[in-house]
């Protein structure tokens, strides 16, 4: 009886090994197909991404809360030491801001009066949805975060995401209860901006470093270090005038901008619904066409 069993094993073992190898090659093949699918921007891939994100959002939300609490505690501990100095600095800043408030009120009234005088087209109404940052994409080649606000709260693709201090990014994908925000430092991020004082237009292009580059400025443009960069509003997706950053310096290769947003204490993001028909409409139209195309298949 031992002979047949032995011969069986002699045949079975290579077959088993072959099957395992085949399964492995199959998986590798599927991975390569996925890579192509991911490159081709297929709607189904985006749907799958947001379905997974929506599914894990509650888990990540719950898990990120204690982490945020500990981070806040640590920061508060550090700040406690500098409380006195900070207090007097804040007092001085408050006095300065009071002055600015007066100026701003006067300018606002003046602006409204002049706009009425010129019969200017009204600015679209802006609404905000606020989401908690629940996940960081992680990894060295991606700068994006997941927030727990989705289409249910009026979030749409292309909207601007604001941190406390300034522009943080743009909504790249949106699901029912979560949205992925591509940060302005990501290598795929391109934001139309303008130099606040000189009104030179340019594009803020991320490159995965802390300080994105300012590109496509007009040839005659000269940019000083420390100048404020704000969104230009071109493309109709972002409201104009959102604070983005400050020119950090112009090296030999590029003009770099230090964003106002503080990546290390970014807990909430405000998503700006600017109510202008821009990219959002185009995307919806494309998506509609894609779904009808899929629906038309036998």
């Amino acid at each position: 009886m031992t002979r047949p069993a032995g011969s069986l094993a002699r045949f079975a073992t290579p077959i088993k090994a072959w099957a395992q190898r085949f399964a492995f090659l199959l998986l590798i093949g599927v991975t390569l197909v996925l890579m192509m699918a991911g490159r081709a921007d297929i709607v189904a891939v985006e749907r799958a991404r947001m379905a997974v994100a929506d599914a894990v959002a509650p888990l990540l939300d719950a898990a990120s809360r204690p982490v945020a609490t500990v981070a806040n505690l640590l920061r508060e501990g550090q700040e406690l030491a500098a409380l006195r100095a900070q207090n007097s600095a804040l007092r001085a800043e408050n006095a300065r801001l009071h002055h600015w408030q007066v100026v701003a009120r006067r300018l606002e009234a003046e602006n409204a009066a002049l706009a009425e005088l010129l019969n200017m087209a009204p600015e679209p109404h802006t609404r905000y949805a606020t989401g908690r940052v629940i996940a960081d994409s992680g990894g060295p080649f991606m700068r994006s975060v997941l927030v727990n606000a989705g289409t249910g709260m009026g979030v749409r693709k292309g909207q601007a995401a604001l941190a406390e201090e300034g522009l943080a990014g743009r909504v790249a994908e949106v699901g029912g209860g979560s949205a992925r925000v591509l940060l302005i430092t990501d290598i795929n991020s391109r934001i139309p901006v303008v130099v606040e004082s000189s009104r030179y237009r340019g594009i803020l292009a991320g490159d995965n470093t802390e300080q994105p580059q300012l590109v496509f400025l007009p040839k005659e443009a000269s940019v000083e270090e420390g100048e404020r960069i704000v969104t230009s509003g071109h493309g109709g997706v972002f409201p104009p005038g959102l604070p983005v950053g400050r020119v950090a310096g112009s090296g030999e290769d590029a003009i770099r901008v230090a964003p106002f947003a503080d990546w290390n204490r970014m807990e909430y993001l405000r998503l700006v619904d600017y109510g202008m028909p821009g990219i959002v409409m185009i995307d919806d139209a494309q998506e509609g066409r894609a779904t009808t195309a899929i629906g038309a298949l036998p």
Binding site: M35, V45, R49, V52, A53, V56
Partner: peptide, 14 residues
């Protein structure tokens, strides 16, 4: 992990 983190599809898996 790729779907959840939004990284390019296929790279991490491979």
């Amino acid at each position: 992990s790729e779907l959840a983190a939004g990284t390019p599809l296929g790279v991490t898996t491979l």
